[in-house]
Design a binder for these strands. Structure first.
Lengths: 335, 335
DNA sequence: GTGAAAGCGCTAACAA
DNA sequence: TTGTTAGCGCTTTCAC
């Protein structure tokens, strides 16, 4: 047949197994297993010998096979809502570092903003990893409960009953935004909402609303918009026609998209309109004009999540990390 | 003891296995296995029955256990040099879509620019996935050969003997850059080099050099620099003191970093200095000024890579994708 | 301290 | 068409 297996073509030699090492070393497989995984349960001599042989044979333990009896793979999965949102960079790096320090390999899976994909990944990876970090999960709480397989799950920027979580303080971030804006003299604010399924969206909107009310400012909600650059034009149009003098976007991606559209329309920012975002992503510092936004300690969050995941956190553990408004050039007094 | 296993705490019921389904359905495990994986090798009646029971018991096949005898996990790994480089976004999306269409789950692993991490991931994931896509691998060719485990491996923006690959046409991209710049009147160009281990770096530099020579322009190489925003200041300093009127950066990350530094120093771009990058990443369109850069069809590349990986590509298959210079505002006639 | 043997959950011959 | 039976490579009792 024309079609043949690549493996066959390259005549790849069967991987070397514990058996091979055992045979070569003249001991039982169980001894090799111990020498390699439980060094102190075997004599120093044997241990050395086995290690030498293993090295010579270039033995590599088969993760999958090891996982079957032990139930552990040494891998942790980080599911991100959208890998193309730079917001997750810090989180990924932080989680990775911490997981690595604990001897785990972190793998990432992109949910592309889709609940279906998210639940699919959750199910398919369930037997392949020792735990999950769900970043900004869009899954309804019922699904979250139902889909949680056998593995521990921790949540980032999402809270749900029975799940440990780490969230950045949207409420306080929103307060800082409102104070900054009203301090500048703005009285009519607009909120450019994110996806309804985004937990943070509700939190931000409610906090924004509460603080606006407290300071006597008016705020209207527009959207929902997809939290992407691409929805910038639609959000800009809505914001512009709302009569607001300052726009608060659900996240930086949307905010930058708005900025781009405003520039196209020659709307001066911040002279004619102020714009604020959330997350302080890659790009917020060099877009035009540089974006005022709510920064959060994403790397710390990543590390904390892994700690919760590996540390047998109480199911209800909830960590709230402080946020800080980074004022750049997209906000100023109303024209 | 205070410390106890989370699994134990939550008293998670043992996952339901094929055995459970078989017992409940009153058939043999092999029948259940077939009914679920080889539907046509079992009678319609049995198939229905087994499916019903499986659904009722909420049976989820254990990927790991399935992988042991079959040797296949249904997962593909995409190793990226640096997950914080938006350059990989398109690649990830393209690869993911194509893999998904073929029934595979794509997992990502971040190598953080480190060869050590890259080889570590390669080894640890070897038994867990059915194949690898290595994006911009920094591994020396000898290591690539040595570390290739049992799984097929395809390369992006890297070529090596015996590995199928997909690369974007750096040579032609470089030609376009040089022609654009010399067409604008530049005679003294500067190349801000990337990591020596980056295969693309050598390609770009040589092509730039060749085309500069062909057009009678002078080009000097500076660096190497780390291909990040953070090395922008160092690269800007080198570029500025080189006397070049146009700078070509190894990639957009570095180019944007340079742009930021030039703005800080109040160097007018492009009036005093032109800047070009490679990749056309997220941000290249909205940095200040918007960056002229070499765009490449990253999503197409992602799809092609998966096709090569799954399609039993000949070990030597090499695909070269066209690039196109996107001219924005960071290039202009020399002052 | 070491070996023999029983699985982990599943697939794939081989029989029936 | 279905059941029986070996394993896949490893860990882990349990004897010795």
């Amino acid at each position: 047949m024309a079609h043949s297996d690549r493996a066959a073509e390259t005549a790849r030699p069967r991987a070397v197994t514990l058996q091979d090492v055992a045979r070569e070393a003249g001991v039982a497989v169980s001894t090799v297993s111990r020498a390699l995984s439980n060094p102190d349960r075997v004599s120093a001599r044997t241990r050395e010998h086995v290690h030498t042989i293993a090295r010579r044979l270039a033995y590599r333990p088969n993760l999958i096979a090891r996982a079957l009896p032990s139930g552990r793979t040494g891998m942790l999965a980080l599911l991100v809502t959208d890998i193309t949102n730079p917001h997750h960079f810090g989180l990924i790096r932080g989680a990775e570092a911490q997981a690595r320090a604990a001897g785990y390999t972190t793998i990432l899976a992109d949910c592309q903003g889709s609940q279906e994909l998210e639940s699919d990944h959750l199910q398919r990876l369930d037997s392949a990893v020792d735990g999950f970090v769900l970043a900004s999960s869009r899954l309804a709480e019922a699904n979250l409960q139902r889909l949680r397989g056998g593995r521990p799950v921790v949540l980032f920027n999402r809270e749900a009953d029975g799940f440990p979580s780490v969230v950045t303080d949207s409420v306080d971030g929103s307060r800082q935004v409102v104070e900054h804006l009203t301090g500048l003299g703005h009285r009519r604010l607009g909120y450019l909402a994110g996806p309804v399924a985004a937990w943070s969206d509700g939190r931000r909107w409610r906090a924004l609303q509460a603080h606006a009310a407290a300071t006597g400012a008016e705020i209207t909600r527009m959207g929902p918009f997809s939290p992407t650059l691409a929805d910038g034009p639609a959000a800009a149009a809505a914001g512009l026609s709302s009569g607001a003098t300052a726009l608060v976007a659900f996240n930086d991606l949307l905010a930058i998209g708005v900025l781009q559209q405003l520039e196209r329309q020659r709307v001066q920012v911040p002279q004619q309109l102020s714009v604020v975002g959330f997350d302080d992503i890659f790009g917020a510092g060099f877009c035009h004009p540089p974006l005022s936004t709510v920064s959060s300690p994403a790397e710390d969050a990543g590390r904390a999540l892994i700690d919760l995941l590996l540390g047998s956190a109480a199911p209800g553990a909830r960590l709230v990390l402080p946020t800080r408004l980074t004022v750049r050039d997209s906000t100023g007094p109303p024209g």
